[in-house]
Design a protein around this nucleic acid. Structure first.
Length: 425
RNA sequence: GUGGGAAUAGCUCAACUGGCAGAGCACCGGACUGUGGCUCCGGCGGUUGCGGGUUCGAUUCCCGUUUCCCACCCCA
């Protein structure tokens, strides 16, 4: 039997109803904040991710689905393409390619699949779905303002609350400008030098390759050492410090709770200043439900003009997992199930179904070969509100037996009255 | 990529130290000719993930492999 490839899965009904419910709510919230949708290709030049996300990141170094395209001619080498492992780089590429700075501040959102060649576990898939947004534009359009950071965070709090996700935590940090980070990195390396030997093997490796990641260490024995290391907050320049303070002030003003976490670092190279993560307890080790931050230098790194930006990506799979809403409760059930009874009744049923559907009713129907009992069982199973019996007697009389399944109340209703009657709750 | 656990009917799970592969739910039919849910009766459903090995005999033991789960790495 051919199965879905490792780390991929089918989303089946009724789960798809829950996904659509989430996406509809998301679109609704984005609309309120004047975000507009963007759709970028599902694969891009490998170079985009190498330059945008960073050669040294795990994502680029070992988690991409990459292949060599064929050239136009036999002799052409063809270019290296990659299934997108995230969507920010693609959006910024589109920003540059279509000169979107002419539109001032761009507030864009996307919903779609991303691909990473990781080992699957709970809440982690090789094809997973992200809901994300990017606010990007020239600084003159206000793209750099702490008001944008706060707006994004407030939007996210609104969205999670709206979806009924209880118990989320917003963790917030500023990782400064690249210049701030250079100073911090130097200090960190200096502080680590004498103590590295006492730390776990992972930390010894991190101390050399990416000292920031030492803060991710979960080994208990290392914690006292880590506690004494310098923090990024001590190295923030005046502008980063003021920017971060204002973000916090706005959040307090609008009443979005957050906790400062100066050990929060982001894995992608393009992040600057504000960095954040929303976590949820019900997700096991993959407790990050969404993450994001500022990327003021990304556009330039991709060969575009200066275009500060901030964005986030929600793991839709994880978001759905942390919801308490059941898929069944959000699925729209048929208003009426039509039961044709006896030879020739499929035609009458089809005519009635067409009429009722024009009134925006959800209509399903059986088959004239079904015994009535079977039609009732089918109507019950799909959760229909009414069953409408279409037999010879009804057609002759021009009035039909309409039964409310929950109450058992049954009436004979004239054809012209049916839609009106069913529309009532 | 590293370490550990698991895989038996559509789903959730049984099957003693190796001895005829089962239950509940679901599905189909009947009891009940045009009236459902409840009940009762019957039926369908399996290469025990896949491939090898040991054995008279393997769901059970061994090896390999695939997938899932848990953790690490990292991230959404």
């Amino acid at each position: 039997m051919i199965k879905a490839p490792r780390g991929t899965r089918d989303l089946l009904p009724p789960d798809t109803a829950l996904w659509n419910f989430v996406e509809a709510a998301v679109r609704d919230v984005f609309r309120a904040y004047n975000f507009q949708e963007i759709r970028t290709p599902i694969f891009e030049s490998t170079e985009l991710f190498a330059r945008g996300v960073g050669e040294e990141t795990d994502i680029v170094a070992k988690e991409m689905f990459t292949w060599e395209d064929r050239g136009r001619a036999e002799s052409d080498k063809g270019q290296s393409l990659t299934l997108r492992p995230e969507n920010t780089a693609g959006v910024v590429r589109a920003y540059i390619e279509h000169k979107l700075w002419d539109r001032g501040l761009n507030k864009l959102f996307y919903i779609g699949p991303q691909f990473r060649r990781e080992r699957p576990q709970k809440g982690r898939f090789r094809q997973f779905y992200q809901i994300g947004a990017e606010v990007i534009g020239p600084a003159s359009a206000g793209s750099e303002s702490p008001a944008r950071d706060a707006e994004i965070l407030e939007l996210l709090a609104t969205l999670l609350d709206r979806l009924g996700i209880a118990g989320w935590t917003l963790e917030l940090n500023s990782i400064g400008t690249p210049e701030d980070r250079v100073k911090f990195n130097d200090a960190l390396r200096q502080a680590l030098e004498p103590v590295t030997a006492q730390m776990c093997s992972d930390c010894q490796r991190r101390a050399i390759t990416n000292p920031l990641r030492v803060f991710d260490c979960k080994v208990p024995e290392d914690q006292p050492i880590i506690e004494k290391l310098p923090r990024i907050s001590q190295f923030l320049g005046e502008s980063s410090r003021a920017h971060f303070a204002e973000v916090q002030e706005i959040l307090k003003t609008v009443g979005v709770p957050f906790t400062l976490n100066d050990r929060l670092v982001r894995g992608l190279d393009y992040y600057t200043r504000t960095a954040f993560e929303f976590t949820h307890g019900a997700l096991g080790a993959q407790n990050a439900i969404l993450g994001g931050g500022r990327y003021d230098g990304l556009s330039e790194a991709l060969g575009g003009p200066a275009a500060p930006g901030i964005g986030f990506a929600i793991g839709e799979d994880r978001l759905v997992m942390s919801m308490t809403e059941s898929a069944d409760s959000v699925a729209r059930k048929p208003d009426v199930y039509i039961a044709p009874l006896g030879a020739g009744m499929n035609r009458e049923a089809a005519r009635l179904a067409r009429e009722l559907r024009r009134h925006d009713l959800v209509v399903d129907l059986g088959d004239e070969s079904f015994r009535l009992k079977k039609s009732f069982e089918a109507a019950d199973k799909m959760g229909a509100r009414y069953i409408l019996i279409v037999g010879e007697n009804e057609v002759k009389a021009g009035a039909f037996a309409l039964k409310h399944l929950a109450s058992g109340e049954q009436n004979t209703i004239a054809r012209g009255e049916l839609a009106h009657r069913i529309l009532q709750p």
